[in-house]
């Protein structure tokens, strides 16, 4: 038996919105410690790794490990029926073929209950493991989203060049070029506005703009995004949850 109660439906809404355009369906792996997902997009360029730790929930129990195959478009439709501020409880029996979803209005005496049919998903997982990191950038997630959107008007690729004291986002396209430079900044009054760059080795990597457009759909999950870059390796883009994370691993583009 799995049962997890979110203090606010908005958190699961945001998680599903951040994932559903990248992967249509995925397995939710439920254990006593929480719920995790690994899913890869159809082109096998972008990997999503989600961890919702037990502490994220108002109440949580999972007596036995269970895997729930979920169509994210369908889940999104049902979750969309609840108000952001509702309590949201998901539950499933051990051999369930459906996921039970209950919204409780905190003011009105109103309870809405839905069942989502589960899917049998045969996922082949990738062994991501711990990765070395040459450069780490942490910046406001809204700023990163704007950089990605602004640069996408120029090119299908976004080049990220990190040196000791700056990160350069560069786009070179048919209509012209664009450069955005950000530098470390400590904002004591508004720590969420701070920018940090730590560097072991300079970085010059290019990523597909269309995949970055998918990644920045997670912007509402966290005020900050952490970007971990390693030479000749996938970039890791991490949005922290109250307890857990939503991470994207994006394979880079290379010169032909």
């Amino acid at each position: 038996m799995l049962e997890g109660k979110f203090e606010e439906a908005s958190l699961l809404k945001k998680i599903v919105e951040a994932m559903k355009d990248c992967v249509s369906s995925c397995n939710f792996n439920c254990t006593e410690n929480g719920i995790s997902v690994q899913a890869v997009d159809n082109s096998r360029v972008l990997l999503i790794s989600l961890l919702i730790e037990k502490d994220t929930f108002e109440e949580y129990r999972c007596d036995r490990n269970i895997t729930l195959g979920v169509g994210l478009g369908s889940l999104s439709k049902i979750i969309g029926n609840g108000a952001n501020s509702d309590y949201l409880t998901i539950s499933a029996d051990d051999d369930a073929d459906k996921l039970n979803i209950i919204f409780e209005d905190k003011v009105k005496d109103k309870i809405s209950e839905y069942n989502l049919k589960l899917l049998d998903i045969d996922a082949d997982l990738l062994d991501v493991g711990p990765m070395d990191t040459d450069a780490t950038i942490t910046l406001p997630s809204a700023d990163f989203a704007k950089i990605c959107k602004d640069m996408k008007v120029l090119s299908e690729s976004l080049q990220i060049i990190v040196t000791k004291d700056s990160a350069l986002f560069q786009s070179v396209g048919d209509i012209g070029t664009g450069n955005i430079v950000i530098r470390p900044k400590t904002d004591i009054d508004h720590p969420e506005e701070s920018v940090t760059i730590s560097l072991d080795k300079p970085i010059d990597l290019s990523f597909g703009s269309k995949y970055l457009s998918d990644i920045i759909k997670a912007t509402s999950l966290s005020q900050k995004v952490t970007i971990k870059l390693t030479d000749q390796s996938p970039g890791v883009f991490e949005y922290k949850l109250p307890s857990g994370y939503l991470r994207f691993y994006l394979a880079p583009k290379f010169d032909e």
Binding site: D124, D127, A251
Partner: peptide, 14 residues
């Protein structure tokens, strides 16, 4: 132009 790589080039299967 640049060529998109695949995650399978970096990560093995579990």
């Amino acid at each position: 132009s640049k060529k998109q790589s695949s995650l399978a080039q970096f990560f093995g299967k579990t």
